[in-house]
Amino acid sequence: MKFHALITSFILAFCCIISAQEKEYKPVKFPKGYTSQLDVVYKTVNEWEGRIDLYTEQNAKESTPILLNIHGGGWNHGEKESQSGFGSFFKNGYAVANVEYRLVDVAPAPAAIEDVRCALIYIYNNAKELNIDTNKIVIMGGSAGGHLALMAGLLGNNSIYDEDCTYKGEIKIAAIINKYGVTDLVPLAKWKSAKRWLGKNYLDAEFTQSVSPLYYVTEDSPPIFIVHGDADPIVPYSQSVKLYEALVNNNVVTEFLSIPNGKHGKFKNEDKKLFRTKMWQFLKELNLSNF
């Protein structure tokens, strides 16, 4: 019995070590001339502090474009430190803001939207100090992060979820990169992650629409690049189809890269390369590069 107990303890300890290792993410590599500011507090709610990692080129001769990146995780898990693949943005002269937001165990919807809007407003309010060109703000996210990127950008000057933060000027995003994000929560309201995030309001169609990007598409919406695998087992491919159709119907500049047999972000290497190529073609056609 003692031997079995010893083995069990060893297994549990080993699993804990592995779990801890999984949380140890590699630091973001940034070019010479850039400055990193980690865990900058952009917002405080009760005891929760919203933090953002900033990688900026403050001594650049001209103000720089910036990527506002939002991690995914079904609104219930994930951390900004898991995001590190910003190399192509640095090469194209971008600063990067990597954002964390309240997960559902801290606060349900619309808290995460309020947070990413505050992070965006923080960039606007500190643009001069950070040497940011506010005419070249790009927001990107995958899965739940894609949903939040769309909400942050499509809301524009609509301050419905800006109670905690204010900006006196115009909020106009240059482009949104939506990677297989949720666009319409109404048909997904009973989906486990969505139901949990929506909380007691999950059957309230009016509220659910108010936190769904699809319902904010207008002819004034920013350009949007969409990528989605047509075999996605988590976020239905139809979510991106509906968004793309709404954008086209409103004459919004958009491109939809469909990945044949693509799963939920798990694309083949050649598909990942195609995504990067197409995305940068899209951004450069919008003059959203310093090179």
Score class of each variant (00 low, 15 high):
Glu24Ser: 15
Leu257Trp: 04
Phe14Val: 11
Ala174His: 03
Ser289Lys: 04
Lys192Ile: 01
Leu214Val: 12
Ile18Gln: 07
Cys15Ile: 15
Lys168Met: 02
Gly169Met: 02
Gln58Asn: 15
Glu170Pro: 00
Ala189Val: 09
Ala20Ser: 09
Leu274Lys: 11
Pro65Asp: 09
Gly50Pro: 06
Ile113Met: 07
Leu286Asn: 02
Lys29Trp: 13
Leu6Ile: 14
Val235Tyr: 02
Asn46Ala: 15
Pro187Glu: 09
Met151Asn: 11
Ile259Thr: 05
Ile113Trp: 06
Met151Trp: 14
Leu155Val: 05
Pro213Phe: 00
Val227Asp: 07
Gly153Thr: 09
Asn201Gly: 02
Asp53Met: 06
Lys172Val: 02
Glu255Leu: 06
Pro222Phe: 04
Arg117Glu: 03
Gly146Val: 01
Thr35Ala: 10
Ala97Glu: 01
Ala174Leu: 05
Tyr25Lys: 06
Asn76Gln: 11
Ala111Ser: 13
Val186Ser: 00
Ala189Gly: 08
Asn157Lys: 09
Asp53Cys: 04
Asn76Phe: 12
Gln281Pro: 07
Ser221Thr: 11
Ala97Asn: 05
Asn98Pro: 02
Leu154Tyr: 10
Asp230Cys: 11
Tyr124Glu: 07
Gly72Arg: 10
Ile17Met: 04
Asp232Glu: 07
Thr35Gln: 14
Leu6Cys: 10
Thr44Gly: 11
Thr254Tyr: 10
Ala60Val: 04
Lys2Met: 14
